[in-house]
Write a protein that binds this DNA or RNA. Structure first.
Lengths: 229, 229
DNA sequence: GCAAAAGTGTTCCATTTACACCCATGC
DNA sequence: GCATGGGTGTAAATGGAACACTTTTGC
């Protein structure tokens, strides 16, 4: 194993059954036996932290279809884990809602709203992940990482509502994302439900790479003429 | 020294002489002799990364008056430094424009626009620091960390212009910051210059702690009545 | 009085929200 | 036909940008 005293962990989030959930595994041994823990582990000699967390998620829990991975922060409190000192680089990982990864028997998903007893500082890491996701949904195209390849606007609305924690209007969601050029219609439609109703058009995200779409909320650079240096 | 293979470094930024500058020291020895480097060093046994970078800045370069410190990211490319592997937690540090820290003779300030040859990945870290500062000036009260205890609006305008890299209007700057409740008049005024002119009122920032002031650019929660879950 | 710098009032514009209305389908 | 969900048109509100105008000083 590579660098001693350093680990990488990830809060992998997905919207499942209408709520935002995080993947946790239950520890079998001390310390913190039976508590729930984020996946992760040591850093290899030849890998950077992002490569490492992707490898470990793929090896340990078969999460290969991450639609987005980004660094959150370093957690370095000397007492964060008992025993020899370990500092952690924490990541946010996202999985589209149509994927159901095969996970080991000690691993399952938990709503971020009601976490079971967690190990170490993993609750704080989950909270950080959640906040980062909510913030970026507002000013980037990160919705692509929660959504399947094609979706109706109302399906997208549920994803955003679950991730943000409050109801989002389908009308305005479509308008905002369309005006920013993030959505395009696939041309196909979804069949209506048993109760009838107009068939919903299917959309896709134009890009699968994260991009900032609302860079300057205020204090924009002057628009037309230069005001000088 | 504490944890092997891990260091903390900081891009300390300050607006000096109308431009945004970063504090760098010139390396005397290999590797990367004569190149310019960010201050930092190893992590002690009993300190977390933020405590560590604050200690090192205070010890090595007498920067005790940091108005703001925040984590940027971990830089972990296995080849980022020659020899034994070292990963770095990078910080952004800010110093108010009225402070002139005493720095060692090998250390000086450089405009972030025209950096000298830098060591390792320190140029990328500077770029990250700069971008973070510019972004947070727009949606937080972080201006307090660049400004002296009391200042005129046009002085504040220069600070924002230097940090953002483009001209900011004094009129709108005052309006935006006042509406958000970030500024308050001290009651005093600054004397006009030799050419005359109306004396400028002095202002201060209400808070010296960073706070997000513009949390939802779009996709706000519904305003009045709840739409249900 | 005049120039210079500071501050305010007003208008304009972009964007988002809210809501009413129209559309397409199953029964 | 009518209930049900989907989509659009449109008005209202928000908030920032631009710019003209007033205020206060030095000379």
């Amino acid at each position: 194993m590579g660098l001693a005293g350093h680990e990488v962990v990830a809060a992998v989030l997905q919207v499942r059954a209408g709520s935002l959930q995080v993947m946790l595994w239950q520890r079998g041994k001390e310390p913190h036996a039976h508590r729930w823990s984020l996946p992760g582990g040591g850093l290899g000699d030849e890998e950077d932290v992002e490569t490492s967390i992707r490898r470990q998620l793929a090896e340990k829990v078969d999460v290969r279809q991450l639609s987005h991975v980004e660094q959150l922060a370093v957690f370095s409190n000397p007492a964060r884990v008992p025993g020899a000192r370990v500092i952690a680089t924490a990541f946010l990982g996202l999985v589209p809602s149509d994927i159901d990864p095969v996970v080991p028997s000690d691993t399952c998903w938990h709503p971020v709203d009601s976490l079971p007893p967690t190990a170490f500082d993993h609750e704080a890491i989950c909270a950080r992940a959640r906040n980062r996701l909510a913030a970026k949904l507002s000013y980037t195209n990160l919705g692509f990482a929660l959504a399947p390849p094609a979706f109706t606007i109302s399906a997208l609305r549920s994803l955003y509502s679950a991730a943000l924690g409050y109801k989002v209007s389908a009308t305005n969601l479509q308008r905002v994302l369309s005006r920013r050029g993030l959505l395009e219609p696939t041309g196909a439609t979804a069949p209506p439900g048993p109760a009838g109703g107009r068939p919903a058009a299917l959309f896709r995200f134009v890009s699968g790479e994260m991009r900032v779409t609302d860079p300057f909320a205020v204090l924009r650079p002057p628009s037309t003429r230069s005001l000088g240096p």
